[in-house]
Design a protein around this nucleic acid. Structure first.
Length: 412
DNA sequence: TGTCCACTGGAAGGGAGGGCTT
DNA sequence: AAGCCCTCCCTTCCAGTGGACA
């Protein structure tokens, strides 16, 4: 009899006690080094329990500085207390990276208040004002305090402008039986500059800045999770320090540190080793870099891929600081090879900005005097991913794969 | 000091696609 | 079926720009 292929791995003792302790969605019972921030939220939101309207708040900080986890932590306790005291509190969390238009934000909120017998609101089709009216009606029907958390709110403002925030911050004047408070979470300290002044003054009644964690603070966070998530004595000396140090270099991103540690442990497990040492952390670091990029690459639209392909191709030929014009010429040629109609230079300029925002390239505007003004572009993806790999499942398009590549290279 | 290059990026609008209302 | 509404992706047009160079 052949053994089941899962048996060998299943039989292994895991180094984890609770892997969830390293999840991004994990809600820890203690939040080291965030006491001031927790207190600021509590002081404001306690009004919800006193029958007043809490001030709108803006939380700022680099990614992985604890904004979201602190907010969830406080709101969970607020919900509990509200239930206990008989003050209904409703909370909503919207990530504006995924939900980034006025219509969709309002539709998402109203849908969460859907009750049996309500007309479902379609993904598109209704005038936005009608969806907003429905939302107000449903909020009034539910009563109590409604706390809207808009995560990555800067993204919403960039794409949809101030209009939605104007409507949302104006809701308290239209609600009769309910009150509403908005908590915006932003990575960008300066995003209110793009807002209509009326909106920004209403929205940022209370600002809380989350400072990036330093390496010692990240160490404390990791220690806390290690206690609940890992078996004792599986970490060699220096592992936590290394994870914390690497993450502190990435702008103090605690999430990054947790990922590093989790993957390091997995690496040790995969090798059937009982101790995690700094080599595993190095392995985890390079896997993380690779893993961060590949899903983004996979979901990139074709033309984005071809643009990135063109940049990478130039780099593989030894060019650095590639100009927009150079990229466009390579891009147009690549399009011809794969028999796709190229987009206009204006559009490519926008696509370059989008790739920059995604962190796949680094672009900066420079002027070369008479040589004109342009961008200088370098790719920001790991070296292991080459031009052909960027095309992913579109590879067959570039196929005659390398043929296309070498034909293009010949021209460079 | 003015010119000029190679763009940038805002504005306006077209059109396809998805959906609702009457 | 016709008339709307909304989003997304794209084009076209064009004023504006930083800085090397004549």
């Amino acid at each position: 009899m052949r053994g089941n292929i899962f048996e060998k791995i299943l039989g292994q003792d895991s180094l984890f006690i609770d892997r969830k302790a390293f999840d991004h969605a994990f809600e820890p019972s203690r939040l080291p080094h965030r006491d001031h921030e927790v207190e600021a939220l509590v002081r404001n939101l306690v009004d919800a329990l006193n029958g007043h309207i809490p001030s709108n708040m803006l939380l700022y900080g680099v990614p992985g500085s604890g904004k979201t986890v602190v907010t969830r932590f406080v709101l969970t306790q607020l919900l509990e207390k509200g239930k206990e005291m008989g003050h209904p509190v409703n909370t909503y969390e919207i990530n504006c990276r995924n939900v980034d238009t006025k219509y969709r934000v309002v539709q998402t909120l109203a849908t969460q208040l859907h009750q049996r017998g309500d007309t479902p609101i379609p993904f598109t089709g209704w005038p936005t004002d009608r969806v907003l009216e429905t939302l107000l009606h449903r909020m009034d029907r539910a009563g109590g305090v409604h706390i809207l958390v808009l995560d990555e709110i800067d993204n919403l403002v960039a794409k949809a402008g101030s209009d939605l925030l104007y409507s949302l911050t104006n809701m308290n004047t239209l609600l009769t039986n309910a009150r509403c408070c908005i908590i915006g979470i932003s990575n960008d300290l300066h995003f209110t500059q793009e807002l209509d002044p009326r909106v920004s003054s209403r929205l940022s009644q209370e600002d809380v800045v989350f400072h990036p964690y330093g390496a010692p603070e990240i160490q404390d966070i990791l220690q806390e999770r290690v206690r609940s998530g890992l078996r004792t004595d599986v970490l060699d000396g220096g592992v936590i320090e290394l994870c914390a140090g690497l993450a502190a270099r990435e702008h103090g991103d605690a999430r990054r540190a947790l990922d590093l540690l989790r993957i390091s442990v997995q690496k040790a497990e995969q090798r059937s080793q009982t101790k995690v040492d700094p080599r595993h952390v190095r392995l985890a670091q390079s896997q993380l870099e690779h893993d961060q990029v590949t899903p983004i690459l996979r979901t990139l639209p074709l033309h984005q891929k071809v643009v990135l392909f063109s940049i990478r191709l130039n780099e593989e030929n030894g060019l650095r600081n590639i100009s927009t014009g150079e990229i466009f010429r390579t891009y147009a040629e690549a399009c011809m090879k794969i028999e796709v109609e190229p987009l206009t230079p204006r559009r490519i300029s926008s696509l370059l900005n989008e790739l920059d925002t995604l962190g796949l390239i680094m672009a900066r505007n420079v002027s070369k005097g008479r040589g004109g003004r342009s961008k200088q572009v370098n790719s920001a993806i790991p070296k292991a991913i080459d031009a052909i790999a960027i095309m992913g499942e579109n590879e067959p398009l570039i196929d005659e794969a390398s043929q296309g590549k070498y034909m293009l290279q010949g021209k460079l």
